[in-house]
Design a protein around this nucleic acid. Structure first.
Lengths: 226, 226
DNA sequence: GTCTATAGCTTGATAGAC
DNA sequence: GTCTATCAAGCTATAGAC
């Protein structure tokens, strides 16, 4: 019944190794039911592995959570930075427009949620929950995303040379709230609009977010308006 | 030691009756540590009352949560509706501006967070958490706030007669994300800006939110832009 | 309205065999 | 790497005396 001593390391159950299956299960359950709302047992049951293996692969429940967060953050920062660099290379002499910068900030992320929805939806929900948590939001978002965000703020400062830093950071705050609510896909918009709009319609927000937000930035961060 | 048979109903410990103290404690702990992250024991310990009293005053932990949410929602809806009515009465013939409507939507709430911070901060944090939760956001926000929100959408539709409903609802979605992140007061803006901005600076956002958001609405919801 | 006591269960984490 | 077995602690909720 058992295939003994496979040359590759054994532990595949539904395609990929145990450690990855644990991370997948944890990501989904943390996103849906919050960190405290899920037990290690429930996670391991979904991962189809024994409880004790959680503590073989990870130091603790909290360590498992951190590894869930880390797994996808690097890739996300990379593709968003690439998008910003691409925009800047299209403008060797002048500054890119605010729309272009906002689009580089939001598009890669929203496109991932559209094109690879099943793989990314729970991670994004998790980020949305964390971002609006007074307990964890301040610290964790800073740790995982601030270098990238600062890079974007810098680009926006160049595109809006008359702005004050205060206006710039508050404008970013508004963008951040709008973006994280979007990736939460709560379904509230569906209820409110009576079915006219859908939380998971990424095309709907991809085309609207940069225009809306760029207009807001220009209103707050231009000289004439002060 | 005991003052026997007071004429007013007895149960005061630090000023107000047990039921209110339980609601206060629950509100704060649910906001800080999430629903699942807090036990009834912890709540009752903070409320300085016995565990069993939770089940005398409320049906269950979940019922306690619902009562926490309900307690302040009515007042909030009332003052925001009053603000909208006041704006409309200043415009008996023409439509109010988008700024005025957005201000009526945001100002009463943010002013409460500024002027009565200690009393309202935990409720607002709780609302922020719920709003970005895929589990509860869709349903609960709809239940507590949608009649009011629909009323504001209606006012905005009049102020932006060339808009489509789809653009209107997506624009509201952006506003909603920005507002709920604001009332979460996570401190992330403080970290990101290196101390230039502060999450709890309500004046900072009160004066910026209507201008930023109104510019976004006009960009998306005007005829010329399509 | 408030207390004590307790039922019945789940939790995070570990020890030790294979 | 994976399993069985187990621990001490904490959990929601209720029954019943005062």
């Amino acid at each position: 019944m058992n295939t003994p001593n496979r040359s590759t390391a054994e532990p595949l159950a539904n395609g990929h190794p145990t450690r990855e299956r644990i991370l997948d299960a944890a990501e989904e359950l943390f996103a849906i039911k919050t960190y405290e709302g899920v037990s290690v047992r429930q996670i391991m049951s979904k991962a189809e592995a024994d409880v004790s293996l959680a503590y073989y692969h990870f130091k603790s429940k909290r360590d498992l959570f951190d590894q869930v967060m880390l797994r996808r953050a690097a890739h996300l920062n990379e593709i968003r930075l690439d998008a910003l660099r691409a925009v800047e290379q299209r403008h060797p002499d002048d500054a890119p427009t605010v729309e272009e910068i906002i689009d580089a900030f939001t598009h890669p992320l929203l496109e991932l949620l559209r094109n690879q929805h099943d793989e990314w939806q729970y991670y994004f929900r998790l980020v949305a929950n964390i971002n609006s948590s007074a307990e964890w939001g301040g610290e964790l978002m800073t740790r995982y995303f601030d270098p990238l965000v600062s890079r974007f703020i810098e680009a926006l400062r160049k595109a809006l040379p008359d702005s004050t830093d205060e206006d710039l950071y508050w404008s970013y705050h508004i963008l951040s709230g709008a973006l994280t609510l979007t990736i939460a896909e709560t379904g509230r918009l569906d209820n409110l609009s009576g079915g006219i709009c859908h939380s998971d319609d990424m095309d709907g927000i991809i085309e609207r977010m940069p225009r809306f937000v760029a207009a807001g930035f220009r209103e707050l961060c231009s000289k004439k308006s002060r």
